[in-house]
Design a protein around this nucleic acid. Structure first.
Lengths: 335, 335
DNA sequence: CTGAAAGCGCTTACAG
DNA sequence: CTGAAAGCGCTTACAG
């Protein structure tokens, strides 16, 4: 592998000059610059990133900690981050926290040892604190980690949009399956759904709302779905809003098992718009998280931490698909 | 951040000695060693991995290139690799090739620039060649990249096991949905399924086999499934074996749409055992790929490339679940 | 504008 | 067994 020294010798300049054209320092005069450039070409020179990192104390790497890359939502996020980072010639180092505070701390610390340009962390449910200072910029994505600035979708707005959508369709007996209430996402989505529904619940046209809670996964969705749908037809909600697509897909399966026709006899909504959401039958009405924009924004916070905002919220988008419809007979409850 | 120098000063030894206890070099005498160790402790010393990498020309990082981390099969693989690597204090650098030869080469090259301990690549469908030498060990996982040694599940054995399973249940009219035939996996699985079925096809008890081909994804499974199942009942196969779980899950959806009861009227099998396989309804009969073992073996090939084997095949395991059963009336074809 | 030189924090022959 | 010293390949004040 050729080094700056080899290039310098070939171009008949000093290593300093080589380094300067490498760093796109404009002070190098055109003729010299060209000689250096062609010497690099001839030798097929590639800078040693590790050596550079030792001097500059920062390597072109972004650390990414997610609870579990196997979760389609995090995988999608990871993919977008990797793509965006590659655009800036950065690689991404991936670590799973397995939704465990201890592991999360350890992973961040291991990443920090590698002197990355920055770290993006999607916090574990029971997320802890780092416990020490670092000058590596850290940004929270989707779920807040420690006190670090957060980039996320506007969960409240999204949840309210779902609430409005169901109400407008005519649903008045509604169940909400919340995510874990020890996560900020879980709380935000639920609180805002409940708030909105409470606003819509007026005396002349009452709304009945039941709340359930579970993990953000398929299994929980199926179990809770089964519970909700177990009762007699006339007591059953006409719509179930789930706090995540995975929960919603679980509900869809429960409904199918119970031979309940979605969306004819039951409307179901999710949140996130993971790719599976448009592949299930029927396709899921949901809130689309702006994955690409989330990734880009988080990365921007790392590269240009000039912004002092503690929180950046991006708008999600209501995607209406086949899993929601007007209830068979608008049940204007008469309590 | 304290350095070896600080530790040396505090312990009253030379930096060489500090470095030697760091590298677990046994030649350092006990008393000295202890002084160094406690000095490290007091200063909360952490070695600068970048500086170490510059000297040793290798950093504790494993590069991983997959076609698409969003694909649950690759995500599962990535997770296992990350976990195994962490056990050896290595981080993993993730890159997606988007199933594109060009991108794949670029990603590998970018990873190589970072002087990793080794690179694991799950080749893209139309995988190319690297085009130059490197002394960084590269190993292919699941799908062969260039001429690099391959660690994979024994696809042939797995496919044959599926063929046997269906035949034993009594299926005689069978459809096989192959993966892309420009991938080795696609070819191996199909060839071995066909070979086995051909062996089982004897004059006194004939077997009828139809072959289809598509991408390894949900959509292709659904489309092809619909095509296969479109015909009149008595012409329909009683079993569909798909080359991947995603294909199989697509088939399940097509069957449901067409009100075909799985497994009563149709048996369906997959391959891989992604986590979704045990979450769909009915749960999928499939071949479980030994994810953990694949990851561990690939990593081993990097850390201890003593083995000269060009190919290591691990046994998959037939997992029989609810998507297969004996056909309603064993159709001993009389052609 | 360019060169000579110091130094980032380690590791590792080389002496002793 | 331990220390003194060179060097990995860059970058960046410091001179000129």
């Amino acid at each position: 592998m050729p080094t700056v020294k080899d290039v310098a010798k070939r171009a008949g300049v000093s290593v300093g000059t080589v380094s300067r054209v490498l760093s796109k320092n404009t002070t190098v005069k055109q003729p010299l610059k060209e000689r250096v450039l062609s010497a690099m070409n001839e030798l097929d020179y590639k800078p040693n990133l590790v050596a550079r990192a030792l001097r500059t104390n920062r390597i072109d790497v972004i650390g990414l900690v997610v609870p579990d890359i196997t979760n389609p939502f995090f995988a999608q996020l990871a993919k977008c981050i990797e793509t965006e980072a590659a655009l800036r010639d950065h690689s991404v180092m991936l670590a799973n926290s397995h939704d465990d505070e201890q592991t999360e701390r350890k992973q961040i610390s291991a990443l920090l040892d590698r002197a990355p340009r920055g770290i993006i962390v999607v916090a574990a449910a029971d997320s802890g604190t780092l416990g020490y200072e670092t000058n590596v910029p850290i940004v929270s994505l989707d779920r807040r980690y420690d006190g670090y600035p957060l980039v996320s979708t506007d969960h409240s707005h999204g949840s309210a949009a779902i609430a409005d959508h169901l109400h407008q369709l005519g649903h008045r007996r509604i169940a909400y399956i919340a995510g874990p209430q020890n996560t900020e996402v879980g709380r935000l989505r639920k609180d805002s759904f409940v708030t909105r529904m409470t606003q819509l619940n007026i005396k002349e046209d009452p709304v009945e709302l039941q709340i359930f809670e579970g993990q953000f996964d398929y299994g929980a969705g199926e179990d809770i779905g089964r519970t909700i749908l177990a009762g007699p037809d006339h007591k059953r909600p006409s719509a179930i809003a789930a706090a995540s697509d995975q929960l919603a897909i679980g509900v869809l399966r429960a409904a199918r098992d119970l031979k309940i026709d979605v969306p004819v006899d039951l409307s179901v909504t999710g949140f996130d718009d993971i790719s599976l959401a448009s592949l299930v039958v029927p396709r899921l009405t949901t809130i689309r998280q702006p994955f690409n924009k989330l990734a880009r924004t988080a990365l921007l916070r790392i590269f240009a931490p000039d912004s002092t905002a503690d929180e950046i919220e991006l708008e999600g988008e209501l995607i209406v698909r086949g899993s929601t419809a007007a209830p068979r007979q608008p049940d204007h409850l008469t309590l």
